[in-house]
Amino acid sequence: MRNFYFKTFQRDSRVYLSRSSSFLGPIVFFLITITLYPIAFGSDEEQLAELAAGIIWISILLANLLSHQFIFNEDYKDGSLDLVLTSGKSLFLWASIKIFVNWYFSSLPLIFISIFTSFMLYLPFDAALILAITLFLGTPILSMFGALAGALTLERGNIVGSSIVIPLCLPALILGILAIQSYKNEELFFYIFLLAAFLFFSIPILIASCLGAIKLHFE
């Protein structure tokens, strides 16, 4: 039987697919940003390879900012959130599904695209693999912080949300970049472990915080 959670997943997925700007926007923004860096820094292979990890992670963080407003804001404005609150279902699971759908449509394509663009920045193949791992661990954290910012600023614009997200995402960004830069060293596993732990603890804490922030708007 198609229940509440499955319908939430289906409904959100169709909303993303029907509104191409919500998932194409971050991709186009990411590609434009990535292409601008070599123009700005020149085509020196060594220099670009050294900066590649930072360039990709920062571009992904900025591209992600474009999609955070879609997580809860629309539901708040069109009254869907009211209906969810009257459903008596687990809001934690509902919010998790909404964040997952956002990650699936806005971050997952960027992970695959970033692997290809990493070669454009002369990132070695081994480092590109580590890049993919760090992005798989790190982008859900970015989505959850984005969701939290979106939940805190339901009645305000994306700029307020963005200014909240960027500082909060810095630890994930730093760990991701350090892991890629140390792809030849044993320290790599330490950074990957820290990033995985960050993700593991973020899930309950950040989703519960999102719900707390949403409830503030109903007081």
Binding site: M1, R2, N3, F4, K7, T8, Q10, R11, R14, V15, S18, R19, E74, K77, D78, G79, S80, D82, L83, T86, S87, K89
Partner: peptide, 25 residues
Amino acid sequence: FLGHNLGLKDSLTVNDNLLLDYRFN
């Protein structure tokens, strides 16, 4: 509950809005 804001998605079709409403199958 039927509020002032109807809880419908503008970017979806009428059919999708009805089929994906969790309150009934």
